[in-house]
């Protein structure tokens, strides 16, 4: 396997709240290879967005990184100052958000916004940037680029705005694209269009993508490897086929069970995961999923399961992983 493009080690993130500290990301480690697409799956509060936003210096004001490293092109992203990080963000790492309106300036023509990134990063001259913006608009599937260049974000539909956002994110040909729920706010047919666009871009550019999503359907169809997060920890990670054939964490299995697929089935008994995910107000010393887990034992309430390596690059953080695997097999 080639050297990773990004290698995150023992990342910790905390948020200061009026009622104390929330431990949002707790010792998360993962890496992504050049050209690879990794899906980070989890529910709200799992820390999936927080972990990635922390790498980019995009945490809310009350959040801070309290530990870890994030190696990218020989530098530790977590040790860089704001200017150094801004230099990398948008040039070497592109970002696409769920709500394109958050990433777009409503008072600026979209063409100027796409050009701005290229000029700030000294990626292109004014003339080159202008021509490249027209090319990018065409590449992301926006008809009539010369006319649309002059439009403002509100003049676009949600799907078209997300295309503009993607054009901005890839303008400087980043090696890594971080896409945070890029299709969640979109209609299903538009979701397919955006995923088709990202699929084309990653193939043509050999760009790595980290896709943050709550949707197992999106993750398993789009990604080469899946990371499942819960309570600020990685619960399970495996290459796609291993993940599909041998899901081994009770939380992952419960997530599969929560997918309501529109197919005929005799057994339509729903088995929801009981309870809700609570924010962690103390540093977790035990499995964060234990309170909702149907397989939890006393040990799970007191002892943190470590991520353990099984066959086929399959990592699982569960005391009972062997039993779960043999049961499913």
């Amino acid at each position: 396997m080639s050297d990773p493009l990004l290698k995150v080690e023992n990342l910790r993130v905390e948020f200061q709240r009026s009622d104390g500290i929330v431990y949002a990301v707790n010792d998360v480690s993962f890496s992504i290879a050049p050209g690879e697409t990794v899906g980070v799956v989890g529910e709200s509060g799992s820390g999936k967005s927080t972990a990635l936003m922390a790498l980019l210096g995009l945490l809310d004001a009350n959040g801070r990184v309290t530990g870890g490293h994030a190696w990218f092109q020989g530098a530790d992203l977590l040790k860089l100052n704001r200017h150094q990080l801004e230099d990398i963000r948008g040039r070497d790492i592109g970002v696409v958000f769920q709500d394109p309106m958050l990433g777009l300036n409503p008072t600026m023509r979209i063409g100027d916004q796409i050009m701005e990134g290229m000029l700030e990063h000294h990626y292109a001259s004014m003339k080159q940037a202008f021509q490249r913006t027209l090319d990018l608009l065409a590449e992301v599937g926006i008809p009539d680029p010369p006319a649309r260049f002059r439009n403002y974000p509100f003049e676009f539909s949600g799907g078209m705005r997300q295309r503009v956002m993607i054009a901005m994110a890839i303008a400087c040909e980043p090696q890594l694209l971080i896409a945070d729920e890029p299709t969640t706010a979109l209609d299903v047919t538009v979701q397919m269009q955006i995923l088709a666009l990202l699929d084309k871009l990653r193939r043509e550019r050999r760009m790595s993508i980290i896709m943050i999503t709550h949707d197992l359907g999106v993750a398993t169809n789009f990604c080469d490897r899946i990371i499942v997060m819960y309570g600020g920890k990685i619960m399970e990670t495996a290459p796609l086929d291993e993940f599909l054939h041998n899901p081994a964490h009770p939380y992952t299995i419960a997530l599969f069970g929560s997918m309501l697929e529109p197919d005929d089935s005799e057994d339509w008994e729903l088995h929801p995961i009981p309870g809700t995910a609570e924010p962690l107000l103390e540093f977790p010393q035990a499995c964060p999923f234990a309170p909702r887990c149907s397989m939890a034992q006393p040990r799970c309430q007191t002892e943190m399961p470590q991520l353990r390596l099984f066959e086929n690059e399959h990592w699982i953080a569960c005391h009972r992983a062997e039993e779960v695997m043999s049961r499913a097999g």
């Binding site: 299903v188 995923l195 088709a196 359907g217 398993t220 789009f222 599909l244 599969f256 697929e261 197919d263």
Partner: peptide, 20 residues
């Protein structure tokens, strides 16, 4: 209905993403 992303059985049966 074609836009529904079902969990595939394996990587070989993943959806091909074609632009609508």
């Amino acid at each position: 209905f074609d836009s529904i992303l079902r969990i595939p059985k394996s990587s070989a049966t993943r959806r091909k993403f074609v632009a609508i």
